[in-house]
Design a protein around this nucleic acid. Structure first.
Lengths: 222, 222
DNA sequence: ACAAAACTTTACATAAACTTTACATAAGGC
DNA sequence: GCCTTATGTAAAGTTTATGTAAAGTTTTGT
């Protein structure tokens, strides 16, 4: 399952560079400013955030960082700050405010990928406990508990349920699901996804949650 | 709601191939050269652009690409470059200039569709909450709330209401509605649209809004 | 290498969504 | 008012997306 990166960067050529560098390994979304970023955040939580310090408008990188760290829902998401080389003050300030890492511009693409991956690796397994209603997904143990009872899931089912749980009560389109779980290139209009949904539904029969289908769009967990 | 593709390609037989391949899933418009393309851009922004590198006249693909990426109004639109196989230089140049993807000729139609879709998918998740009076359309949940209560809508109804809400208090002509929701080519003067309007009216009975018909023109939400 | 599990594909079933038909009704022009 | 025309509506018909079983393929474990 590809992990998702959100980045906030006003320079469009840098954005393109980031995208080009990262999109092989991750699902990326770029945003011009804090506003667009937080809007997107309502419907989707990324696994990591890349944040430029210098941004035009009211919300600079620090403002966004502190907002992120304030909310319970987003405070666990690792944040990598990006700023001009040698700007030691920004670096210290960012790290003090809860940023997880810091990259100085200009940086090589390999460094960028390496840092992102390193920070994703560092994620404390304990935090990787996703829950919604009576469903609990314990990542460290690769285990799903529904209605107090552990349920057995295959990998694909596990990933699918995780995706739906992370974005509970938000529609995930078939395309999104495919791109997150199978990778962008997966095609072949076949019934694969439906099958996994079917299995999950069967296994979640006794729980409080339900996977609803939104015809013509995708699925939603409620 | 079909997404729109603009393509610039001077070879008419290739144009036809593109059209034939894509028109099932998208609203397509083809242009001979940059001039025609930019003219059309003034009145309509596509969701994605397919750009041939080799074009006759002053504007080759790169020239068009850089123009596109210069303007704030168009720089966000994904661009897929098309050029002869193995033309690595063009590829690198294109991607450096901000192209989002690259297809080498000759390509299979499936690859074309796949690339286009993949690039559309990468677009930052568009969460929008549209509201008018007591109507609220929550895109992330694909949900419509009217008068505090959730109302169930089908896809076409949802799209139709979204269109009317986005342009509340402005008449939407039948033609506009057809082209936005069904795609430009949809014809068959039949009662399809009226039926969906009827259903929406029924479902919005208890809300503050009303879909009025403007005889000889179209519909308006008030 | 074998068996078991996981995953995908095929082929068809089903129900929801959508369109068409056929006619009714209302609006505007004369 | 009467005629024309655009829109409204119910019901029937068609299409399409999704659901499901079963068979086939790949992966994993022993």
């Amino acid at each position: 399952m590809k992990q998702t990166i959100f980045m906030v960067e006003d320079d469009s050529s840098l954005r393109e560079l980031y995208m080009y560098t990262l999109e092989n390994d991750f699902v990326c979304a770029c945003f011009d400013d804090g506003k667009a970023f937080f809007k997107a955040l309502e419907s989707k939580k990324p696994d990591i955030v890349l944040l430029d310090v210098m941004l035009p408008g009211a919300d600079d990188g620090f403002a966004i960082l502190s907002k992120l760290k304030e909310s319970k829902k987003t405070s666990h998401i690792p944040v990598i700050m990006v700023s001009a080389r040698g700007d030691e003050l920004s670096k210290v300030k960012g790290l003090n405010m809860g940023a997880d890492d810091y990259i100085a511009k200009p940086f090589g693409v390999l460094e960028l990928v390496a840092r992102v991956k390193a920070n994703l690796r560092k994620l404390p397994p304990a935090l990787e406990k996703i829950s919604y209603k009576d469903i609990e997904i314990i990542n460290a143990k690769h285990q799903v508990v529904a209605n107090g009872k552990q349920i057995q899931t295959t990998l694909k089912e596990y990933n699918l349920l995780t995706l739906l749980c992370k974005n509970a009560e938000n529609v995930q389109s078939r395309e999104q699901i495919f791109s997150e779980i199978w990778g962008e290139d997966f095609m072949g209009e076949t019934r694969t996804l439906d099958i996994h949904i079917k299995e999950l539904r069967k296994k979640l029969k006794d729980s409080d949650v339900e996977i609803k289908t939104i015809r013509g769009v995708g699925y939603i967990l409620t």
